[in-house]
Write a protein that binds this DNA or RNA. Structure first.
Lengths: 198, 198
DNA sequence: TTGTTGATTTCGCAA
DNA sequence: TTGCGAAGTCAACAA
């Protein structure tokens, strides 16, 4: 038994907040779920039959407010933006680079950017906001597959991110993958539509 | 401008909740951070200098409560439990299996369980609650390393999880890794202390 | 409906 | 302090 903040949101979710844990509640139930009040308890049940049971001994405060849905939040600088900007400025990777296409399809998922270097060699680019080992593994899988295609092989790999963790860099370089740290501000700054030819 | 729930927790975090997004706030700032009130705005700044700026036009309700820290929440069935139970009942993997040790150390991190099969061959086990591609990659890295050790090689891999995603299973089996679906209830059921010899 | 990917993950442990 | 692994992710998009 402890003092807690109970929060029922309009989407049906029920949150039990303690005073720690940053934005994460101590416990919760995600929508869709049903809330049954009775005998000092809330019983919250989701579709899978899982239950969150709250015993209420005393109410310090209780109020309800309509929040509405509204525009909400606009994000900037997510991976999709990095991908778009880098595709437009593929020369960031080196002189003579040419874009083949974004979201280049393969059997195991799309490669973020496929391009060719000055010598005409195929280059697969994996883009992350934060470059960690997962991303290197993902690019490695793509490279293994792409290099089986005689029309493409040999395909080099480039791992591009705003920040690359040391361990990810080590793994990438061990595998012959080039690491590139992207400067989002610089990419965005150069992305002036009036300076673009097409 | 919209009606929002502003929540300042004792750990310093500031949460802006809308009526959607389940347990996640529309926007937030994680501790440690500082909150400066002034002129209808809250300016929340973290250590890295990032800012969350909230403009307040009207207050519908305002209250403060001491929540305390308390025991909180006890979890059951996390990976550590699966690992302990499987180590105690290593025969789940097959007759004649013997435990070498849990958290078997390697240069790139500990292998969850190292054991030997009936024929005496080394087996590295990676345990997950939910088996996804990441886990297969992790086990693959361990196997590559372990198989360079002439005292251990050849080392087989077993990928054990309560639930294994099809893509993870395919990747694992392509690499000769055995997939095992763990039944937590069954493992726990057998783990009756009164039935244990030590 | 199902699967896959990205995200301001947070938290705990150990080196 | 830093790095790494685990977690009840959630939401958007595509097949």
């Amino acid at each position: 038994m402890a003092t807690r903040l109970l929060l029922v949101k309009a989407d049906g979710s029920v949150l039990v907040h303690s005073d720690g844990g940053s934005y994460k509640p101590l416990n919760w139930m995600s929508p869709p779920c049903t809330l049954v009040e009775g005998d000092g308890t809330w019983t919250v049940t989701n579709k899978a039959g899982e239950q969150l049971i709250v015993t209420i001994e005393q109410v310090e405060h209780d109020s309800a407010h309509e929040l509405g849905v509204d525009p909400g939040l606009v994000k900037d600088g997510v991976e999709a933006h990095l991908q778009k900007l880098l595709a437009e400025q593929i020369h960031t990777l080196g002189d003579g680079y040419r874009l083949v296409r974004r979201e280049f399809p393969t059997a195991i998922g799309p490669v973020d950017i496929m391009c060719r270097d000055a010598a005409g060699g195929a280059v697969a680019v994996e883009i992350k906001r934060r470059g960690e080992i997962d991303g290197v593994e993902q690019l490695t899988r793509y490279l293994e597959l792409l290099n089986r295609d005689p029309l493409l092989a040999p395909v080099r790999g480039v791992f591009a991110a705003q920040e690359i963790k040391p361990q990810a860099r080590t793994l990438a370089e061990d595998r012959g993958i080039t690491c590139v740290v992207l400067d989002y501000e610089a990419l965005r700054g150069v992305d002036d539509p009036s300076q673009r030819l097409f």
